[in-house]
Nucleic acid binder design. Structure first.
Lengths: 151, 151
DNA sequence: GCGTGATGGTGGCATATGCCACTAAATGAA
DNA sequence: TTCATTTAGTGGCATATGCCACCATCACGC
């Protein structure tokens, strides 16, 4: 294939996804900046909030995130006093996570900004299109790429 | 809004996008692992390859990536001898980037793996759906979220 | 030719994510 | 009970990304 006829990176599903994620991330982060939280942090606080003192593994699974990555991401939030952890009394391997009162206040503040970003996105992209997009993304998240066992 | 009725994070366009990006990134990275490149690196090498000794700023713009982020990402590729940079003779502020012969060989190797990942994704997700997804993602990447000037 | 401001990159710092090796704790089989 | 196995997290290391302050260059008006 000659260089002149090579397709753009738009052809790669993964590259297109990352590119869009950078774009959208920059926008959401911008809008959320006044809260001092990144959009990822707001999402994480929210995920913790809607869970019932979720275990780290459960959060990681929901977010399709590596467990250790979650641990790292949690650190600044713990350092800043938004989140605290405690061992599950029934199984001391399990570490559960919850918001502190300060974290709850911060989440409220961040959610107001999130709504602005979300609204603006839907205004610009179209509500229907946004909904279909989220559905498509959720489908991807649910896919199973494992090759069937060679049995 | 009571905690019980709070919507899942599926409602946030940005969160859904990142979640899907993690999922797909893990899959592509997995398949590309034998080459020693991450999918992001393969994408970057490819972008450099299809450009005509592109300037850093031009690459960053294509990928909707921060210029400094691009600089960071490029470092391991330069260190490993896949990429080299040189100042534009006509404007010494501009730094251009190109693949080394070694980088070209590595890109070839990585592209073969990429095709496997891409093919498998399209088999699992459906070719039409993948195409529509990429189109939607490109649209997002092209959106303009700026508020119109208050003039 | 001399500022002066715009342009293109770098470096430092911080978060986002992932993999791997390792530890602690629970589970289950012998 | 005892020991091998599995499960849940941690810490270290590496890449991915972004923001900001700063430096070098260029373009322009005078």
């Amino acid at each position: 294939m000659s260089k002149d006829t090579l397709p753009g990176l738009t052809l790669c599903n993964n590259a297109a996804l990352r590119r869009a994620a950078r774009k959208l991330g920059q926008f959401y982060d911008d809008v959320m900046a006044p809260s001092g939280l990144k959009a990822t942090q707001q999402g994480l606080l929210y995920q913790i909030h809607i869970g019932d003192e979720p275990a780290m593994g459960a959060i990681a699974a929901s977010l399709i995130m590596d467990l250790s990555a979650l641990g790292h991401t949690l650190k600044p939030l713990i350092r800043d006093g938004y989140v605290e952890t405690f061992a599950d009394p029934a199984d001391r391997r399990i570490k559960r996570v919850r918001l502190t009162p300060k974290g709850l206040v911060k989440l409220d503040e961040a959610m107001k900004l999130w709504q602005i970003a979300q609204q603006r996105f839907e205004d610009v992209a179209g509500k229907d299109k946004a909904e279909r997009l989220r559905a498509a993304l959720d489908e991807i998240a649910a896919l199973d790429f494992d090759l069937p066992p060679a049995s």
